[in-house]
Structures are given as C-alpha cells and as structure tokens.
Amino acid sequence: MFRILLALFIFLPLSSVFAASPSSTLRFSPLPMLSEHLVKEQFLSFCSSLSELTCQNVSLIYKKDYQDLLKALHNDELDLAYLGPLPYVMARKTDPDIIPVVRFLDKHQKATYTCSLVTFGHNHPNLDADYPTIALTQPYSTCGYLVTESLLSPYQHSLNDCPYTYVGDHEQAALAVIRGDAALAGVKTTIARRYENLGLTILDESAPLPGFLLVANRRTLDPATIDQLRSDLLSLNHAFSADQKEKPEWGKMIRYGMIEAHDEDYDAIRALLTRFPVPEILP
C-alpha cells in the first residue's frame, strides 16, 4: 500500500510537469559554415527563442556538410533549417514542401548581399593572355561557381575554360588571390572589402542577392504552425534592442532582424542557376 502511495506521490507531480511541457520536438539544423562548436554557439539562443515561441522543444542538429543537411530535409529528419540562397533553391527545386519562413538582415539592416570578383592590385583578367586560375569558396556557395561564372562573362572568361579550385571559404579564396595562388576569386563583397588592405581589388560586383533564410518542412509542420512561427519571429523585431537593433545573444548571422521570406525572392538565383548550372551540384 505504501509503495502504491509513493508511486502516486512521485507520478502525479511528474505527469503535471510533462503535461505543461511542449508536446513534441522541433528539429532545427543550420548550414555548417563554421565548426560545430561555433555553429551551436551561434544558434543555441535562437533555438531557445524558437522553443519559447512554439512551446515546443527545439533540438539543434549539426550536419557536417550541405548535402547532408539537404538530404535530411528531404528525408523529413528536419523540421526547420537555416539555409543559404543557393542551397535553398536547390532544396526547393527537388522538394516543394521546403518553404521559406523569414530572411535575415545583415548588420546594415539589408536583406540582400552581393558577391564580387576580386583580383590582386592592378591585375586585370582581360590583360592576362592565359586563362587565369580562379579560387572559389565551395559548390553550394552562391558566391562560388554560380555568381563567379556570371561575373566572369563580361571578361570573356568562363569557369568552363579556366582552371578553378574550391578553397573552402571566402577568406581563403581572397587570400589565395593575395598570395598569388589564384589570379581571380569570387567572394562575398564584404569579405573582399575586408582584404582591400592587402591590395585585393574588386573587379566586379553582382546584383543584390537574397540572403540567408529560415525554411520549414511542410510535411512535418502544418501550415498554421509555420504561419504562426513566421508571425512570431517577425514580431520579435520589435523586441530587439532599440539602439543596436540586434538581438545580441543570437549569432552574428541572424541577430540583426528578419523580414518575411518569399520563394519568389530567390527567382534571381534560380535564373542564374539556369544560366550557369553548377557542375558539382547538378541533380
């Protein structure tokens, strides 16, 4: 009798706790642009906010590369993801249930960014008789093959003809040019400007491109939940620090605010992709 009472004594409070807690877990994974530790640090607080907004537990899942992340989305192993423009377009192309939720603003409250074709000093591709060596970030990077190919076209160069290499990220691509390992590189304009102190020169800059976004998996989340999440996230803009206009505890890539994202925002990417298909990520 005593054991039954003891079990009831323990079980009843616990059951009330479970009843009050979120009923399921949202699975969220960001694009692996940094080490696992830094990625988790950037997004941990964001996940907490998501959990508060949805009244559900949010699990932060780290995927080692872009393909793994897209595959997980496709296999319904993820409910939410933080994607770059090109990965989003690639994912959406094969899976229409991946829908955009919000786009993130940059430090200057812009929802777009540009890519640049860079060289060292006074070099000019047109002046180079040989095919220049070109440094690219990685296949799924918008500033990588896709935009670089589009920026090379005015100079009568194509990545189909020039030797190019993926060096991993924007910084390495810029340094490859400074070191002389490559004559040209396609990098994010903000990165290119950062290395101007070493003689890095921007030859050309792309049109504004939509930035990183949060996507939802419509197969695992009902539309009402997604709409509610979008609405809640956008309402957070007002809660951001008035003077800094940022949410300091969130990662640098996402702390400056959000706007509503639409699939058509990424039509420019789709157009580029149609014109300049990336060989490494062809379906």
Binding site: F120, G121, H122, I178, R179, G180, E196, N197, L198, G199, L200
Partner: peptide
C-alpha cells in the same frame, strides 16, 4: 592608400 595596400599584399605574398 591603395599603393600601400598593394605593397602590403606583396609583403604578405
């Protein structure tokens, strides 16, 4: 200015 940056890049190189 830019000249200095290019020289700096050369030193780096």
């Amino acid at each position: 200015g830019k000249e200095q940056n290019i020289l700096r890049g050369q030193l780096y190189r």
